[in-house]
Computed example of a mutant assay.
Amino acid sequence: MWFLISLHMAAGQKHPCWHLWSLPSRQIAGSKPENICRQFHKSDQMSETNTSSQSVKLLAKLGLAIVLIMLLWPLRGDAAEAVSFNTTTTAPLATKDQDGFQDEILIEVFRRQGRKVITRYLPGERSLINLNKGVDDGTVVRIAGLEKTYTNFRIVPEAVLDFEFVAFTLDQAVVINNWADLKPYSVSFVNGWKIYEKNVQGVKQIVRVRDQVQLFQLLAAKRTDIVLYEKWSGLYEIKKLGLKNVRAHPLATRAMYMYLHKKNEAMIPDLTAALKSMKSDGTI
């Protein structure tokens, strides 16, 4: 037996009972080598089994971690890049599918920053409150100067586009050339449109409504003399309702801006540059 072990080791291989050579002589004295060999061989097998089991468990955990990272990393990246905006503008400038003219401008502005933007419609005053609280990252499009009232607003100083603010009437006898001409009439507009809140003064009656649908329904029902809205979105609502002989009286044209919550003001220089470049290259 010992001769075979010696030959095995001489061949440069470890015999299953190689442990014997490192044991003190007193531990093997009086014992048969075969018994000692079997004892240590059994111990080795148990040790190898435990080690193998632990390795399998470790590899399984590592594999699961890698799979989770691969699945979640793209979602994390999209979430980090997405910017949430609100708007009070309606079709055809802004739509639920984000394919209106205003939508396309905003999408392109953020695309040039390597970001995505998600825009949702909110009623006028609610959109301002949400931005001031930081619920949304930004709002578009708004008149200049809102940062004086809403202290958490930060304006992007390059205009997005110009709005034509219009008085719509059904009565063909009504003539409106300026804000003062509104005084003899009942006037309706969407709550939160600051240009109207500022300029409509001393009129017969003011009716504030939640949105453009209510606004033009009032006009259709002849429950108000004049409704005030943005020109193109107003014409869109008139067409939807099938109203005839509606006159549009221009009141003002204003540059319209995007605002960010103050937590995002670091974006302002890049957004300003993007808007300027879009105007230079003919995108806007």
Rank of each mutant, 00 (worst) to 15 (best):
T272W: 06
Q102Y: 06
Q113R: 05
K183W: 06
T253N: 00
S31H: 11
W2C: 04
T149L: 07
Q27R: 15
W179K: 05
V109H: 05
M70T: 12
V190L: 03
S53V: 13
A10E: 06
M9Q: 15
S53P: 11
T169A: 07
G282E: 09
S52I: 11
L182W: 07
L241I: 04
I69G: 09
V207A: 08
V141P: 13
D137Q: 05
V141T: 13
N199C: 12
K222Q: 08
H261L: 01
H249N: 05
N50H: 07
Q172H: 05
K194M: 12
P123L: 01
I238Y: 01
L275E: 12
V160S: 08
V135R: 12
A266I: 01
T272I: 06
Q54E: 07
K262V: 14
D225R: 00
I155V: 05
P123D: 14
S6W: 13
L128D: 02
L72Q: 14
D136G: 00
Q113G: 10
I155K: 04
S31C: 11
R142K: 09
K116W: 11
R254T: 06
S47Y: 08
G114M: 03
T89K: 03
E34R: 10
Q13Y: 03
Q113W: 11
M70G: 12
E147H: 02
M46Q: 15
N130P: 06
F165N: 01
E147G: 14
S186Y: 06
F216C: 03
P269V: 00
L71Y: 13
D136P: 00
N130C: 07
L161R: 10
W179E: 08
K32V: 05
V203L: 02
N152V: 01
F85W: 02
I143H: 06
E237N: 09
P16Y: 02
A248M: 14
I118T: 05
L23D: 04
Q102G: 02
A255P: 14
T88V: 12
G202A: 01
L228Y: 09
T139K: 03
D103A: 07
S280C: 14
S188A: 13
R154E: 06
R247T: 09
A79Q: 06
G30V: 04
P184K: 13
S47A: 07
N177W: 03
M46L: 12
P123A: 02
I176R: 11
Q201H: 02
R38M: 09
I176Y: 09
V175A: 10
A82G: 11
M9Y: 06
A252T: 09
L62P: 14
P269F: 14
L251R: 04
A273Q: 12
A252D: 14
K32R: 10
V117C: 04
L235H: 08
K262W: 08
L182M: 09
A248F: 01
Y257R: 12
V187A: 02
A29C: 00
Y121A: 03
T87D: 15
L23P: 00
A80F: 01
L7T: 13
K14G: 03
Y196T: 00
Y121Q: 11
N177E: 06
L4W: 04
I155A: 01
F165L: 01
G100W: 09
L271Q: 12
K263R: 02
K42V: 01
I5V: 09
